[in-house]
Amino acid sequence: MSKKTKLTASIGDQTLRLLTLLMAISVLVLMFWMGWQMFQSAGPSIDKFGFGFITGRVWDPVKEQFGALPFIYGTLMTSLLALLIATPIGLGVAIFLNEMAVTKVRMVVAFLVEMLAAIPSVVYGLWGIFILAPWLRETIQPALAKWFGFLPLFQGTPLGFGMLAGGLILAIMILPTIAAISGEVMAAVPNEQREAALALGATKWEMIRIAVLPYAKSGILGGIMLGLGRALGETMAVTMLIGNRPDILPSLFAPAYSMAAVIANEFTEATYDLYLSALVEIGLILFGITLILNVFARLLVWSVARGPKGGIS
């Protein structure tokens, strides 16, 4: 190679290296910029309401009063309900796929579960409005009220729309996340663990209970947290089903409001700066919560997936 071609080659090399470096850094910048941008826009609301924003129960744009508690409550209730339903089912799916199903069945079922995750949120919302909510109103809620009506959770008029509908649709939407991550960490459990348990005469269930689940425990917890993160920030389906009323009521039948839903509904209607700023602050809280959840969840999943701590490998 002559000196000249060597030089151009090294210039080309440097250009590509710098270009990729720039793009990598831009991702980092993007994350900080988004946080900063929201913090800026939320400023007026943070200055005016301080910590009281989180504990305030009144949301009245006309009187310039902004308290986010009803939205935090609605978000937490629906998300917890979703976790309660989706965790056992998602774990069941993960165990079925990883420990029971033969390859062909596993491939088909895994694809179907992936499809469940691929259906757009707004389609779940549409289905929820016209199929799920009427079904809840006419069949499920009267039955729940009849058998468990003594609990405050299941009292009140069956409307269909409300926290129950929101929680159910979220359960469907986060189930694939929980199943996929749990499956991933179960697959990372070394086969020696399973073989050892089986060699000692364990049944399959005992093998799963003794050798697989304890090993995958923290990874599964991570999967559940990622599911929770998804539930907290899910917007469209919840907006279409939760009933959109900023009340704090104990009954799951009651309409409520979620943080993402109030942003979706009122953002373009925010007529003055403080109003907009309050909505951005709700978004900022959501951003913070999901960020922390994600960091913890990734650490947990990573601690399992990277393999055993010392010893067997």
Partner: peptide, 9 residues
């Protein structure tokens, strides 16, 4: 982090 944050953000 970017994968995990809600899309409405």
């Amino acid at each position: 982090v970017l994968t995990g944050i809600p899309s409405i953000i």
